[in-house]
Design a binder for these strands. Structure first.
Lengths: 233, 233
DNA sequence: GCAAAAGTGTTTGGATTACACCCATGC
DNA sequence: GCATGGGTGTAATCCAAACACTTTTGC
């Protein structure tokens, strides 16, 4: 006799999906790449891109596949978010979903069509419409996680263009944390990151152009290792 | 024709489980409640208590059920940890597992037998044996998460007895963060928690007995709400 | 010259650290 | 009395916030 109240095979009747929240930064706002669903259920609803996971596919691989299908990008770091598994969350059966998120540079690629998406579009986090399934919850709790990571890991550079001004960096944090920061103090705070100054300046501004910088990941990792450095915004 | 390379029903062939890391604190050490498996696979191996999730069961409910079966405890807060889903992690099929963790007071209950456990035992985190499946990974990454939560949320009181001395509290942190702290400075740091002093003292110690305190959750939540207080160790 | 933003230095007050000292209890 | 840890005050130090000021560019 089985230990369970149901047959063991009745457990193998669920599917799982990976939903991939893709964040970008544009016009001073953090945005998410949403798709409009091309099929039932929730046809025509806006949703976080996601897909069922193949029986032999690892979870982060599925998340990367979704990102690749939509953007053509590869080798982007995927961060695991929460897992959502309420029995009622999917109308067609028990489907639990593992949320991942990725940070990308909006200008680095073009949105591609995808098998499950009528269209895809960047949407400012202030203007998110009603989403399919429990995707509103997934998006907001994943954004909370992103903000937390922004505090303790220098992942802001995954959102900014490769060359950026210090003010652009500051504005990203001001947007995410919904605060205003002092310019001088902000620059003191990021001193230990040793951002690489470039021999290049901002163009087409009608004031003194700011210097451009880039982030040196390997030097950052080195100071974590060697000096036990802990980034903190 | 299906959009997928396999039949849609072939996705509904996986199961998922919840593994529940139960942490306790005893003799100055953080311990995990492990079970010895009574069935294949990994029969006789030590493992994190876990179980398949019933088709109509919500994930936190499954985690609570596991805790209840083993300890008789109910109404314990469950914290979601990471999800592990490598295709090879379970020898009998695709089983992904969502890890949860709970913090409990070791003295508050007695370990019960359980359908899937030969025996259960508290094991110090310094003495964890080889575990079944990928449970070593699950345990260590969940402990990292616990340490992180200990820094930003006053969940230490879920591990300590209801009445505790300030030194016991300090020792818990010293163990978790593997540091030594200054007594006077530690007490200044926890001032804003407004721990309730009791008219009671330590007993059976061969020195001046310390005052006992308890934690007032509702007052803590009030100062979070009213004064935007953020706990930080 | 003026507007606008880049970029930097100084002061100040609050928090953290190090450390010293007294207190209460058991034996 | 003394050993042991309980309990608290203070000075030194560091750090972050506030703010002022100079510089460079476009028009």
């Amino acid at each position: 006799m089985s230990l369970y109240k149901i047959e063991i095979n009745d457990f193998f009747t669920s599917a799982f999906s990976v939903d991939c929240v893709i964040f970008g930064y544009e016009d001073g706002e953090i945005k998410a790449l949403l798709i409009q669903r091309g099929m039932e259920p929730f046809k025509h609803f806006w949703a976080i891109p996601g897909d069922l996971v193949y029986p032999n596919e690892d979870l982060p691989d599925a998340a990367s596949r979704i990102l690749h299908e939509l953007t053509g990008l590869s080798d982007v770091e995927m961060h695991q978010s929460h897992t959502f598994g309420s029995p009622e969350r999917h109308p067609q059966g028990r489907v639990i979903t593992i949320a991942y998120f990725a940070l990308i540079r909006i200008t680095d690629f073009e949105i591609k069509a995808s098998s499950w998406a009528e269209k895809a579009q960047w949407v400012s986090l202030n203007e998110i419409p009603a989403l399919a399934f429990d995707h509103s919850t997934i998006l907001s709790s994943t954004y909370e996680l992103l903000k937390q990571k922004l505090t303790y890991e220098p992942i802001c550079f995954e959102l900014l263009p490769e060359r950026f001004t210090l003010n652009e960096l500051q504005q990203l944090y001001e947007y995410a944390f919904n605060t205003i920061m002092d310019k001088a103090n902000f620059r003191k705070k990021i001193k230990p990151l040793h951002l690489t100054p470039l021999n290049e300046r901002q163009k087409n501004v009608k004031h003194r152009p700011a210097k451009l910088f880039k982030f040196d990941q390997s030097e950052y990792l080195k100071s974590v290792q060697d000096d036990n450095y802990q980034f903190k915004m």
